[in-house]
């Protein structure tokens, strides 16, 4: 939903970043307003996953230039947990397994950390279980997964559902979903996409990072950005994704004019 007067939630300006002294992002510009769904597409190595990690504050990535404003305030100076508490959410491409740490406990501690930031009351064990049972329906997840260790032994689809469950609990302002569709079968994709659509609203924004069109069949983006060589090369509507689907990514390299234009 595009509303030109909607407030800007995330503003990325000329962002440069590197990992292990290797520059990856070479000046990314992107603005997310409330209510919008953006898709960033690009092939492997284009820098799109780096963008998501930098926004979430992964310690292995160093910002070497530019700025990111979250609701007008500097995002980059915050610790990862602080970013999460104020409403930034990263859905991981490969959610890690954390043996021994109960999923339920993890969800509760994290939800409470977000709630406290918002000045809401902490939920006790019972109140939280009610909440989590309600949210489980969004992703059609078996409550048995709550009793297990975080992501441990989960299938690819179960891990992604667990990510969306966390998103449902944390109610983020800006959700970044990194390759959420990878490794999902059709049914799982439908459920995950359903969850994302359900959670997208007029007051938040979503940034989908994806390789393929198929996720965008299920979640309609307002904007599609093509990323290559650490920059956003083209921006268009949802039809740009279809064009990519038909023509592949090679033309991105083949059109030097496009490069010049940036």
């Amino acid at each position: 939903m595009i509303r030109p007067d909607a407030p800007v939630l995330l503003e990325i300006r000329d962002l440069h970043a590197s990992v292990a002294d290797q520059p990856i992002l070479h000046g990314v510009n992107l603005t997310l307003r409330a209510g919008e769904i953006h898709a960033v597409m690009g092939r492997n190595g284009s820098g799109k996953s780096t963008l998501s990690k930098v926004l979430a504050g992964h310690p292995a990535y160093t910002v070497t230039g530019g700025s990111v404003l979250y609701k007008g305030a500097d995002l980059l100076e915050l610790d990862p947990e602080q970013r999460a508490r104020i409403g930034l959410f990263l859905g991981f491409q490969y959610p890690v397994e954390i043996p021994g740490v109960s999923n339920l406990e993890f969800l509760r501690v994290s939800t409470n950390a977000r709630r406290m930031e918002e000045g809401e009351e902490e939920l006790d064990t019972f109140a939280f279980e009610d909440l989590v049972n309600e949210k489980l329906q969004v992703v059609q997840m078996d409550p048995a997964f709550l009793e297990r260790s975080v992501n441990e032994g989960f299938s690819g689809g179960e891990k992604k559902r667990n990510e969306i469950l966390q998103m449902a609990l944390l109610e983020p302002v800006v959700a970044i979903l990194d390759e959420t569709d990878s490794g999902l079968d059709i049914d799982a994709l439908r459920i995950v996409a359903g969850g994302v659509n359900h959670l997208a609203g007029p007051d938040n924004a979503t940034l989908l990072i994806t390789h393929y069109q198929r996720l965008l069949d299920a979640i309609t983006p307002d904007y599609v950005h093509v990323m290559a060589h650490g920059r956003i090369l083209r921006t268009g509507g949802k039809e740009l994704a279809l064009e990519l689907e038909q023509r592949g990514y090679d033309w991105v390299d083949a059109e030097p004019a496009v490069l010049e234009a940036v």
């Binding site: 990862p80 947990e81 999460a84 990263l90 959610p95 954390i98 930031e117 975080v150 944390l170």
Partner: peptide
């Protein structure tokens, strides 16, 4: 580091 980052990115302090 990845496990720590995962928990931190859900708002849980270091």
């Amino acid at each position: 580091e990845d496990q720590l980052f995962y928990l931190q990115s859900r708002g849980i302090g270091f």
